[in-house]
């Protein structure tokens, strides 16, 4: 594997936008001159079922076409998954896990028994309800990710989100912008 490759694994439930997030972050990386891959784990599409998404970002071309088993970063879009899915499985030492949760990072660190990785939390569900009007945590989680993994620029994410959601109207775009910025500011480390 290229040394400078970053591998991100997304955990969510069907319908929460993990596929959009995984591929959008890949597109943003490409725009910033890096190589990237973004793909979901496909099954029969069932809303609410646990799903995974994957993003690879690298300074050199990416050839590998398998899923990600030893992620540098894990992003959990739905805190209810923590009871049923081993989200930190394979997480690299010194890696990070970012969870959509109102709880403090220290509390989740204890719950998930995470030792050699950084733990971050942000209440993306609440943020998305307040700013977008419904529980769609994927865009604020991307904002939080940009804070904890500053290899991509927040402005590029915002521009891509605008492109992606433009057809849904300005209210949706502005709501997403506010949600992304708030999550960027409110993410906590512990």
């Amino acid at each position: 594997m290229p040394e400078k490759m970053v591998e991100i694994r997304w955990h969510a439930r069907g319908g929460q936008g993990a596929k959009t997030a995984a591929t959008l972050v890949a597109a943003v990386a490409l725009e910033e001159g890096k190589y990237s891959q973004g793909f979901p784990d496909y099954g029969p599409e069932r809303e609410g079922a646990p799903i995974r998404g994957y993003t690879r970002i690298s300074d050199t071309p990416i050839y590998v076409h398998s899923a990600i088993y030893a992620p540098d970063i894990v992003v959990v879009l739905d805190p209810t998954l923590l009871d049923s899915v081993d989200v930190s499985d394979g997480l690299k030492e010194g890696g990070m896990i970012l969870i959509n949760s109102a709880k403090a990072p220290a509390e989740l660190r204890k719950q998930l028994k995470i030792k050699n990785a950084k733990v971050y939390t942000v209440d993306a569900t609440q943020i998305s309800i307040e700013e977008i009007g419904r529980s769609i945590p994927n865009t604020p989680m991307m904002g939080a990710l940009m804070k904890v993994m500053p290899i991509l620029k927040l402005e590029t994410i915002l521009a891509d989100v605008e492109k992606k959601f433009k057809s849904k109207g300005d209210r949706i775009v502005q709501g997403n912008f506010r949600a992304i910025r708030r999550a960027f500011e409110e993410v906590k480390e512990g």
């Binding site: 591929t23 890949a26 597109a27 490409l30 190589y35 990237s36 891959q37 973004g38 793909f39 979901p40 496909y42 071309p61 990416i62 076409h65």
Partner: peptide
């Protein structure tokens, strides 16, 4: 070309 692995993966 491989279903999902290529057909549904965003790549450059």
């Amino acid at each position: 070309f491989d279903g999902f692995i290529i057909s549904h993966t965003n790549e450059p």
